[in-house]
Design a protein around this nucleic acid. Structure first.
Lengths: 329, 329
DNA sequence: TTCATTTGTGTAATCGTGTACACAATCATG
DNA sequence: CATGATTGTGTACACGATTACACAAATGAA
């Protein structure tokens, strides 16, 4: 118990070979007698030997670590993607290091710390870090950076999201239902992705001679959705609220119902964004502009694999969103 | 762009010193002239130099990596703890590696992979890995293992949870409300923690001459809560369901309301466990046996810090749960 | 002035692998 | 049998940092 880990040199002595041969026993494609390999593997199992990944990484210049830059872990709007990606990485023997930057005072310092671990790849989910910062910090370690935010740079692969058609569909339906006065409840004040999403809906409204009449800013949480919706509905007579994500939409729906006695979809239409599993629960049944999470993560993994194999190829993939219909709009 | 990272030896040449001095400039408590240090740090900044953490770990025998063994990332019943812990670790310059074992075919192999990275600590949230397996795999790297599951071992610290008093309180209230026939909806068939939780409620019922009349097994998800509740309510006339976690409780509540027209708390009482934020949302308002997440993570961090500083001390901490009242029971 | 102590720096070994190179043994081919 | 290719193994160095040790210079005390 608690004994130090055995090294390849020690195991070499035990097996009567050199440490180089130990290393070869653990490398699938190396010149080694199969009898020797079997013997070494057996002795290794007996003594609980496993090659030290830290030493290997130093030698290899390849750590098999992947930095995942996320806003928060618990936040459902990212959680499903995170889960899928981690699963896929693990299947490829890649280990994810989570950088949770929403609550960290100095996100840049956190990213610098991770970059000293020579991560092979970086995936930026968060819209709270500027892509230029990410590139500046990680470019010396030459990882690929997969991000939402478009940035022309040889080290960055982009995944672009297009929800304009789905937004148009949703607005079409709501307007047909007789709603005329729209509010937009943003998730953040500064995020570019929030602005992009807002534009999809603003364009769809403009096409029909309508505008966003009222606006509010939350922080992607239920509580902020609830609170901002109350304020919004008190200061303006809107009959539809487009929310920055599903969780805020649920908050807004509860606020409308509880604080103002307005029910969806008759009194007010409420739309979410993301298409998280919870949105489809019977108690929520949200109409939402949804992204196919599997397709999204497929794209991320595709970019990572291409980079791993040093293949050239398109560094940008565009995904389109779909409308997912519930009873709130 | 994309250039290789500069090494300490190269920086040494640029600054006209030896690589040992470079190292000293980055170690807070080492003998080095302040003028030299300032010059080195300035040249380092200029060339984007940062010490290579992989090489440092190899030399130090200390990786500053922490393995977090979890069931799933998105699952709300753990997500809040995960988020808190990651936050606290990052503040201590420790980087978390997530091992997501719910969907991994071979959890043990995944843990073995992580153990080759010489993690300093291991925190096991998941009840899907046996503690003995974790000890066997990680003991060679001598990390501390923090886990729910009690296991007497010098390498394992335990956090024990006691919800018996809170369960008693909850049962008391439900029985006073006139309910008599209880069902228990488990999260898993095999998890020891599920059995422990079940026992709290079974004991509270026994004290009042009651038993668990019906039983079902889900998988901690909303859908399983919904489905199993439907089956349960069709095959037996229970008027209270205790669920293995909050998410399943929400599913069960929706099932009762939608499929059988039964409302809480009049027709049926429904109780969750965990006390996740979502349970308190207006649309859920769940009665739940809740754990103080902050206290829990405080305890984990306490154990980790004690181990980091090589301090002896109690290796076991017990936390008690509270009843959190909503309108479902 | 003289000697002991402190301060700042360089040299070289170390951490645990992977791998280029060398070399002996084996095998195939004519 | 001679020769060239292949196979299996050991030696030695590299990966990029940290650090024990040595030593010169600076400092202090008498």
């Amino acid at each position: 118990m608690n004994k130090r880990r055995i090294t390849s040199k020690e195991l070499a002595k035990l097996a009567g070979v050199s440490s180089a041969t130990i290393s070869r026993a653990f490398s699938p494609d190396s010149r080694i007698g199969s009898a020797t390999r079997d013997r070494i593997l057996s002795v290794a199992r007996e003594h609980g030997y496993q090659p030290n990944a830290i030493a290997r990484s130093l030698n290899n210049q390849r750590s098999r670590l992947v930095a995942l830059v996320v806003n928060a872990i618990g936040n459902p709007c990212e959680a499903e993607e995170q889960q899928l990606l981690v699963h896929r990485l693990q299947a490829r023997q890649l280990l994810p290091i989570i950088l949770c930057c929403a609550d960290h005072d100095d996100r840049l310092q956190l990213m610098r710390l991770a970059s000293t671990y020579q991560v092979d790849h970086v995936v930026v989910f968060s819209d709270m870090v500027s892509m230029q910062d990410a590139v500046d910090i990680f470019h010396t370690t030459k990882p690929i950076i997969v991000s939402f935010e478009p940035l022309e740079n040889e080290n960055v692969s982009n995944i672009r999201i297009d929800g304009s058609a789905a937004a148009d569909e949703i607005i079409e339906k709501i307007v047909n239902d007789g709603k005329k006065r729209f509010a937009y409840l943003s998730g953040t004040k500064s995020s570019w992705i929030d602005k992009l999403r807002r534009k999809w809906f603003a364009d769809a409204l403009a096409k029909r001679g309508l505008t966003i009449e009222a606006e509010a800013f939350g922080d992607y949480t239920y509580d902020s959705g609830f609170k901002e919706a109350v304020l919004l509905l008190h200061r303006s007579k809107v009959d539809a609220i487009i929310c920055g994500n599903d969780v805020m939409a649920i908050g807004a729906r509860d606020a409308a119902r509880r604080m103002l006695g307005k029910n969806t979809p008759d009194d007010i239409a409420i739309v979410g964004q993301d298409g998280i599993a919870m949105a489809a629960w019977d108690c929520n049944d949200l109409t939402t502009l949804s992204l196919d999470h599997v397709a999204f993560i497929d794209a991320v993994v595709d970019l990572i694999e291409r980079h791993d194999a040093d293949l050239p190829g398109p560094h940008s993939i565009t995904l389109t969103c779909n409308a997912r219909w519930g009873s709130t709009a």
